[in-house]
């Protein structure tokens, strides 16, 4: 099923990553994926969206998706079988749908870290046949059987805010917890295009090209600084003195130079804005050491 798209993607050498990221936007991949999904031999994969130790903000961010939106995602691209936030069923009946999915071919999305303290009891996601089911057990159960595991958001990818010092819940990232390959889609929250674009890549072309931290290069290949709309101000050495100023915020602690996402060109929420254009620094929310290693967020 990957003959057309697969060749196209894999044979592209990334000579100029900036140009490539512009060419290969999520939208383009999604268009091709949709074509693939529509072709007769494609069978929709199931998808479990498992909320673990986090703020459940990634599913909220996913609901902000546009072209395609979540309805398209669930109708045309994958079959969502489990989501604590969205599913109509509740209680044991809901968790039964989680268990039933394990016997099928499915993608596992985890948002949130894995709380490991006290046998995982800091995060219980269900009660089944009278027994509590921790998020830790659920991630293990599904993680071992899933065709692909996506860690969505910075908590799932790297531990993130849930594992911030002193890490009261003993939270670890999904990759640290599972002994298998995990695609990381960090971001606090993860941009809906990064999730849907990655799923589209999997459907249409197979595994996306990943960097050394297992992040898809199409979204996480270049630093914010390299594509920043305020780069010329940095080059000229003109710096903002406080939030609200129109210049480069490097001296206010902007983490754009070390943060790899396509925020400057993609932008957020209907592609209308992003933190730096709101006159605030990038706080490195998609980086491995967020939040502890990214502080202070604002340097005065």
């Amino acid at each position: 099923m990957n003959s057309f798209g697969g060749n196209h993607l894999n044979n592209t050498s990334f000579k100029c990553p900036i140009l490539d990221s512009k060419d290969m936007t999520a939208k383009k991949i999604i268009d091709l994926a949709i074509k693939e999904v529509r072709s007769s031999e494609y069978k929709k994969l199931n998808l479990i969206w498992l909320e673990a130790t986090g703020c459940s903000g990634n599913i909220i961010s996913l609901l902000n998706a546009q072209n395609p939106d979540v309805i398209y995602l669930f109708k045309e691209m994958v079959t969502l079988t489990y989501s604590n936030s969205l599913m109509a069923a509740e209680g044991e009946e809901a968790f039964q749908q989680f268990l039933d999915t394990l016997e099928t071919e499915f993608i596992l999305v985890v948002e949130g870290a894995v709380a490991t303290k006290d046998q995982g009891l800091y995060n219980v996601i269900a009660r089944y046949k009278g027994k509590l089911v921790t998020a830790m057990e659920a991630v293990k159960l599904a993680g071992e059987k899933a065709k692909v595991v996506l860690a969505v958001g910075t908590c799932a990818s790297f531990g993130g805010p849930s594992a911030a010092r002193p890490n009261p819940s003993g939270s670890v990232s999904v990759s640290d917890f599972l002994d298998r390959e995990v695609i990381r889609l960090p971001g606090c929250p993860c941009h809906p295009d990064w999730v849907i674009g990655t799923i589209a890549n999997l459907i249409a072309f197979g595994m996306p090209e990943l960097d050394e931290k297992n992040r898809p290069i199409i979204f996480y290949g270049i630093t914010v600084h390299d594509q920043c709309s305020r780069r010329s101000s940095f080059n000229k050495g003109i710096f903002a003195k406080k939030l609200g100023d129109p210049e480069c915020m490097f001296k206010l602690g902007c983490r754009g130079p070390i943060t790899k996402t396509d925020c400057p060109v993609r932008q957020w929420n209907g592609y209308v804005n992003w933190p730096i254009e709101d006159n605030t620094p990038c706080i490195g929310c998609a980086q491995e050491r967020f939040p502890d290693g990214m502080e202070p967020f604002i340097r005065y």
């Binding site: 703020c55 546009q66 929250p189 209907g270 709101d278």
Partner: peptide, 19 residues
């Protein structure tokens, strides 16, 4: 979604806005 878009126009992004 559009309610969040309004928020982002003024606050940079959302969830977890900056403005």
């Amino acid at each position: 979604r559009l309610a969040h878009e309004m928020l982002a126009v003024l606050g940079g992004k959302v969830p977890h806005s900056h403005g």
